[in-house]
């Protein structure tokens, strides 16, 4: 593949609710207040890229709940993974987890949500966007990255970094990698670091209850609602770093999951932190769905993360960048 091209491929006819370019995110700047951004479901993003033999970190379109209407301007291919948002190409239904072929003028549209929350649309070579601090991810809340730091709008033209009409196999993802059907989610967590700021009953409530995802849920964080989690001495701590997936519990005793565009520091108690292997699931949880938490140790957490990537590698290993491991 020849890189360094920028070939107009897709015209945005209707933007959808919140569609933005995302890659694996922007690392190394949290001490300046800059969160990672990047795909809310990295596993689905990487699947979309590997279906097209792209690098794992190529930028794809993250499509949230209400999908856009897109017109293809050239012959080429694309892949679709993650949520099932009733995608249709000129009226023909498309299942997630496959590579599709398109002709100029064909229109990709989306309908009612069937399963999951976020779909990923990748194109050969990835979408073109300026590299900002090493990433093409849109940081919506800070207003930079991706397409001028914003979600798609009508009239945008999305370009590929390679000629989209490269000989692509119309492969599909093995069924075991498809998004599991919606349902209550059990997220594994590491306890703390402020577990000693909660009452014994508060900790029992956290692990023994299920919480509902509210409509105040976005790329910054998810607010959950459920039985009140009691503090011993109030919710305020001296402001400190907020790791990705931290479960913060402010004054009302309701958990807030801190996600990819969160504030990088926070002054509320953190009862636990979701393990890396389970954070992608949050990105697929819809408002109204239920979440509960299960305690695990560090070794289990690290093992779970290794295992899910090894299992994806056994289907199709990642493409190594030249000169980069």
């Amino acid at each position: 593949m020849v890189e360094g091209l920028s070939i107009p491929y897709i015209k945005v006819l209707r933007p959808g609710a919140q569609s933005s370019l995302q890659d694996l995110g922007r690392l190394g700047y949290q001490s300046l207040g800059i969160a990672e951004a990047g795909a809310m479901d990295r596993y689905s993003l990487v699947q979309a890229n590997r279906l097209l033999n792209n690098h794992d970190n190529s930028a794809a379109l993250e499509i949230t709940l209400v999908g856009p209407k897109l017109r293809f301007e050239r012959t080429g291919t694309f892949s679709l993974t993650g949520a099932d948002l009733s995608a249709q190409l000129d009226g023909h239904p498309l299942a997630p987890g496959r590579v599709y072929r398109t002709e100029p003028g064909q229109v990709l549209s989306f309908g009612p949500r069937i399963n999951g929350m976020r779909a990923y649309l990748a194109v050969p070579g990835g979408f073109d966007a300026p590299l900002v601090l090493g990433s093409r991810s849109t940081y919506v809340y800070a207003g930079f990255g991706g397409l001028e730091g914003r979600a798609l709008t009508k009239g945008d033209v999305l370009s590929c970094l390679v000629e989209p009409e490269v000989g692509q196999e119309l492969t599909s993802l093995p069924e075991s990698f498809l998004l599991p059907p919606d349902g209550p989610r059990v997220l594994r967590v590491i306890i703390g670091p402020h577990e000693d700021r909660f009452t014994k009953e508060g900790i029992e409530t956290f692990f023994g209850s299920s919480f509902e995802v509210t409509s105040e849920s976005n790329r910054m964080g998810y607010r959950l609602e459920g039985p009140r989690i009691g503090h011993t001495d109030g919710p305020i701590v001296v402001s400190e770093a907020t790791p990705l997936g931290a479960v913060q519990v402010p004054g009302q005793g309701q958990p807030v999951l801190l996600l990819r565009e969160r504030g990088t520091t926070g002054g509320y108690t953190k009862i636990a932190c979701i393990i890396t292997a389970d954070i992608d699931q949050v990105g697929q949880a819809t408002p109204g769905s239920r979440i509960s938490f299960r305690l695990v140790g560090l070794k289990q957490a690290h093992h779970a993360e290794r295992e899910r990537w090894q299992s994806l590698d056994s289907w199709r290993p990642r493409i190594e960048k030249k000169g980069v491991k």
Partner: peptide, 10 residues
């Protein structure tokens, strides 16, 4: 010294 999630230490 304690973990803050599975990839950070505080």
């Amino acid at each position: 010294v304690k973990p803050s999630g599975d990839r950070a230490l505080r």
